[in-house]
Design a binder for these strands. Structure first.
Lengths: 190, 190
DNA sequence: GCAAATCCGGAGACTCTCTCCGTATTTTGT
DNA sequence: ACAAAATACGGAGAGAGTCTCCGGATTTGC
């Protein structure tokens, strides 16, 4: 699923530089980092940036695919070593931590689970939904997760908890407490 | 707690016009509406806008105080006609609906419950926290609400649920379902 | 090595925010 | 009623970003 035609050498070089510059800039200034500034850091014209990454989302995603894939992979690790319900809880926690700690991640994960967004069919959205689906199915089978929720619902709710926790403390000090409300609410009620 | 010195006549007139224009613009374009455009709609120079409302938050708050106060008052109405736990649930639902339906409200309520924000001590923040506090205390006394949550925590969590629900559907179609996860999680667990 | 294909750069047109200060309006004092 | 003092107005313009456009530079294929 790589380029049909391989990229021209200079194009590939600039692409890589942009990715590196973007990662730095997003880490430093958050999702709102200046795009022209990223181009400058990469030693590239702004036209080049916009050609490779037509939207901020596209750049954000390209800069963070690795982390996203790691998160998704982590779901299976947890599934292998914990009972389904606990695996899900722990995974949601880790997702929230990533959302809160990695600047720019929130916007990316948010748009990945936004219904109707053109970004809905992005790679990272697919990975995360897939990972969530595996945990969700197991937990529902086990009976420790309400049956009326789909994988994407959990991702959205986790996003909401991360948001709430940022209101209290940008560094996530309240995350565990807020998340526990969510995880309690995820259990089937008698 | 009105102006110490009464405002000059033209100042008051412009203030009112700005408020009306702002309400329209926020309703139309959301919290990000152009401020210069609001000034233009009001038939006023941009300097005048910034003099009356130094920040976007200030304008947002001034434009929506009424609604916020109504929300806060609604808490007491509900408390008077429902058992504490249900009153709280219903109030949270109404707050979320307002958050989702009234464009610009989300930003306002969000900053009102943000710790460390200078906006933390705004009038609307105070009203909402006060209203929440009354419901929370009653519900905790009754034993239908976890003891480890403060009023402001609930406002933040509601904000998170509203956010999650917007990811699914900007018109709030999933709000009830998502909120039910929160309200279930708010019960003390055995 | 050369033509064709591809990609680059950055000027520039827009949009938005926010400040500054000469000018205009209102209020006050008599 | 009128001048002086107090107060408020307005909009030009600086600054920061976004995003496009296309003449010119690079790379590739042969």
């Amino acid at each position: 699923m790589t380029q049909v035609k391989p990229m021209r050498a200079d194009a590939r070089r600039n692409y890589e530089r942009l990715l590196k510059a973007a990662a730095e800039a997003f880490a430093e200034h958050g999702e709102g980092a200046s795009l022209d500034d990223i181009a400058k850091r990469a030693g590239v014209g702004s036209g080049t940036l916009y050609r490779h990454f037509p939207t901020r989302q596209a750049l954000l995603e390209a800069a963070y695919v690795d982390r996203i894939e790691a998160m998704a992979a982590r779901a299976d690790e947890l599934a292998a070593q914990l009972p389904p319900g606990e695996a899900l809880d722990e995974w949601l926690y880790e997702v929230c931590v990533g959302t809160v700690q990695v600047r720019g991640m929130k916007a990316l994960l948010g748009s990945a689970v936004t219904d109707g967004s053109t970004a809905a069919l992005t790679a990272c959205g697919t990975s995360m939904k897939g990972a969530a689906a595996r945990l969700v199915e197991a937990a529902q089978r086990e009976g420790t997760l309400r049956a009326d929720l789909e994988p994407v619902d959990l991702l959205r709710l986790a996003h909401g908890v991360a948001t709430a926790s940022e209101l209290a403390d940008p560094r996530g000090g309240q995350l565990r407490r807020y998340l526990s409300v969510l995880t309690d609410g995820l259990r089937p009620q008698k």
